[in-house]
């Protein structure tokens, strides 16, 4: 797993893909930090994080789109799948590399915390609630994007598909509200990224929400491994 993780991370850092993601993320984070916190003179990070929440859905597929589709296109997956490594280590290696870049992007908020923290009282519970929520969201989005990347050879489809699938998990609670059907409403809320993010924004570490995000991550990692396995039998 270490070899795959290292190579993938290196690939983000020697090709533009990692930098493009980091640059856009930092730009958006900087813009909202400046707008909400500095100009608005507030120590509340909620606006910043809720803006980043939406951007994460659109930006993470930029990280994950190439993970498997590029391998398949250039047939480099042959090297991985014929080497004495398990499918799980391939999937985890790539997942952690994408997550590392995502967290590098998210870590910029710690600098903002430092800046604001020196100027006024910050509710650390709320900040770290957001931070952990964002971390878990990032993990879920990386796994989800990687899964879409494993089913297609085209990076464009992997990126657009990843965004689409991410949007489904974000918009699903609105669908539930529109339907007027209580059962459907409950199901939609249960699988909504937004609903499970709410507790974090209040500084509450709700174990159910933590488990939800971890389960979504695990589910898509599992589906990625199954997709790779299925292709062998195709």
């Amino acid at each position: 797993m270490a070899a795959i993780y290292k190579r993938e991370l290196r690939s983000y850092l020697v090709t533009p893909s990692g930098y493009v993601f980091l640059a856009i993320f930092y730009m958006m984070a900087g813009y909202y930090f400046y707008g909400y916190n500095l100009m608005g003179a507030t120590t509340d990070f909620s606006y910043l994080f809720s803006s980043l929440f939406s951007f994460a859905v659109f930006l993470t597929p930029l990280l994950t789109m190439k993970l498997f589709s590029e391998e398949r296109r250039y047939k480099t997956d042959q090297a991985l799948l014929t080497a004495p490594v398990s499918l799980a280590s391939i999937v985890f290696g790539k997942f952690f590399a994408a997550l590392t870049i995502f967290e590098t992007a998210q870590a910029v908020t710690l600098i903002y915390l430092l800046v604001i923290g020196t100027k006024g009282p910050v509710e650390y519970g709320v900040f770290f609630g957001h931070f952990i929520g964002m971390f878990l969201l990032g993990a879920a989005l990386c796994a989800l994007g990687m899964f879409v990347s494993s089913v297609t050879e085209s990076q464009v489809i992997a990126a657009v598909g990843g965004m689409g699938l991410g949007l489904v998990f974000i918009l699903i609670d609105s669908v539930g509200q529109l339907s007027q059907e209580p059962v459907l409403n409950r199901i939609c809320n249960a699988i909504s990224f937004v609903q499970h993010y709410q507790d974090f924004t209040m500084g509450i570490l709700n174990i159910a929400s933590v488990i939800f995000y971890l389960s979504v991550t695990a589910l898509f990692l599992f589906l990625t491994a199954r997709t790779l396995e299925k292709r062998r039998w195709g």
Binding site: R7, R10, S11, V14, T15, Y74, K75, T76, D77, Q78, A79, L80
Partner: peptide, 8 residues
């Protein structure tokens, strides 16, 4: 096709 990463 030798399975080599182009960026390495």
């Amino acid at each position: 096709i030798p399975p080599l990463y182009q960026d390495l």
